[in-house]
Design a protein around this nucleic acid. Structure first.
Length: 464
DNA sequence: CCAGGATATTCGTGTAATTT
DNA sequence: AAATTACACGAATATCCTGG
């Protein structure tokens, strides 16, 4: 930076002062050359003559010196002054430049300081976050990996908030993020209770309380509704009765005076109106009440419907927005408007099937095929070969092959004892969390047969 | 930021093997 | 043969990651 500025100044100098200095140097050089030439060519007559002439001219010039010298001195002074001014300007420029540089350096320093501070703050924040997480983990006093002691609650490190989620039909449902663990736990409880799962709540007591309150509230509402209904019925009956009475009285009146029809009519209009009005009011009140009830019920129903619609909508939105298929390894490709299939290979890598599909199911099948070729029977598939879901029988007793690798017999429930003996094969089975000995056998086949039989027996027991 | 998919981790339980 | 221990599996759940 300074070098640059200096070079800038230098350039400026070159254009003015330096040029002059150069000129002076040139003149000086020329003078020296002249002297050298004179010395060299002293013997040369014409030259010597010229020198003499020159001397004469010089002397003549010297005679004119006073006036000329004055002018020259003045000029020199002027030049000197200008020189000084120039120097001054240069100095000032240099000072300015230095100042500028200093300022720039200061700015730079400030910037760096700020950046450092930012970095420090960030590091501090990070440290705080980590320590907080640690604290939480420690406070939770739960197995490593858990960030909250509450069920369905975990700390979302990215936001520093507590995240509540639950499973519905095996699908994770996010319940939102909360500032505190408790809030998240309550959200989980609420959703869990709504889903009918009340055994694994974080605050069972609170839930009980809520249930009681809800029940009480419901009972109150029911009572109120009942009362309203009765009232409405009563009002209706009263109205009907009144109407009947009126009709009767009207009939009587009509019967009584046929001539005074007009008058009666008028009277009816005058007198009959109020009671009619009254009746009407009662009726309308009852009707209104009824209507209110109906509206209430309707409203309740509607809100329920609305709720469901909203849920459906949000689900639809979510599934649509989140581009993903309900099938494993299947995803929507916007560009081609088709479904792609891929198989997870581990470590965040996938094997692409490489063919696009028009339907999700096709892609899902393609995934299954690829996964099977990659992992064989260990593959996790979308469709089971038997069409059943992945829910291994709790008692797969009839399965002949051991589920565990590296066993002595490869047969389920059969172990070959190291010590050997006449009957080295032992059959055992686990039932209701207890190991049951089936017996010792001479051959693995016998042991396996015994196991199968016992398994069938236990399975039938389990069935009942 | 949210929601959901994919992966990593945890935990309970069944099974194999050994010990009593 | 029962009890115990060690191990392995798989479901549940936590966490990471990504698209909208």
């Amino acid at each position: 930076m300074p070098a640059n500025a200096m070079s800038g100044v230098g350039t400026m100098k070159y254009s003015a002062a330096t040029q002059r200095a150069k000129d002076a140097a040139g003149k000086h050089r020329a003078g020296a050359q002249g002297a050298q030439g004179a010395a060299r060519k002293r013997a040369d007559d014409p030259k010597a003559k010229k020198k003499a002439e020159d001397a004469v001219a010089k002397a003549r010039a010297n005679m004119k010196q006073p006036a000329k010298a004055k002018v020259k001195a003045k000029e020199k002074e002027k030049q000197l002054k200008m020189e000084k001014q120039r120097e001054e300007r240069e100095r000032k420029a240099k000072a300015r430049e230095e100042k500028r540089e200093q300022k720039a350096a200061e700015r730079e320093a400030a910037k760096k300081k700020k950046a450092d501070e930012r970095a420090e703050r960030k590091a501090q924040k990070e440290a705080e976050k980590i320590s907080r997480t640690k604290e939480i983990a420690v406070a939770a006093a739960k197995p490593a990996g858990k960030t909250s002691k509450y069920r369905g609650v975990s700390l979302d490190r990215s936001s520093g908030k507590f995240f509540a989620s639950m499973r519905r039909d095996g699908i994770k449902v996010a319940l939102g993020r909360f500032a505190t663990e408790m809030d998240a736990a309550r959200a989980y409880d609420k959703a869990s209770a709504e889903a009918g799962k009340v055994k694994t709540l974080n605050f069972p007591d609170e839930h009980q309380e809520a249930v009681r309150a809800a029940e009480a509230n419901e009972a109150r509402e029911k009572e109120a509704a009942e009362a309203a209904k009765t009232a409405a019925k009563e009002a209706k009956r009263a109205q009907a009765e009144k109407a009947k009475k009126e009709r009767q009285s009207a009939k009587r009146g009509k019967d009584k005076s046929k001539e005074t029809d007009k008058k009666a009519g008028k009277e009816k209009e005058a007198k009959g109106e109020p009671p009619k009005k009254k009746a009407k009011t009662a009726a309308s009140a009852a009707a209104a009440k009824e209507a209110t009830e109906a509206a209430k019920a309707k409203k309740l129903k509607r809100t329920e419907e609305e709720k469901m619609a909203a849920v459906a909508e949000s689900e639809k939105k979510a599934s649509a927005g989140n581009r993903s298929s309900k099938f494993r390894g299947v995803s929507w490709r916007k560009a081609s408007g088709k479904w792609a299939a891929r198989v997870y290979k581990g470590h965040g890598k996938y094997k692409e099937v490489g063919v696009m599909f028009d339907t999700e199911a096709e892609a899902a099948s393609a995934h299954d095929e690829a996964a099977t070729s990659l992992y064989g029977d260990k593959a996790i598939l979308n469709f089971q070969s038997d069409g059943k879901t992945i829910n291994p029988l709790r008692f797969a007793y009839l399965q002949r092959e051991s589920t565990v690798r590296n066993t002595t017999t490869k047969l389920r429930g059969v172990t070959k004892l190291k010590k050997g003996g006449a009957k080295p094969y032992v059959a055992q089975i686990s039932f209701r969390s207890r190991m049951i000995s089936i017996g010792s056998f001479a051959t693995a086949e016998e042991a396996s047969k015994a196991y199968t039989e016992k398994a069938a027996e236990l399975r039938s027991m389990e069935g009942n």
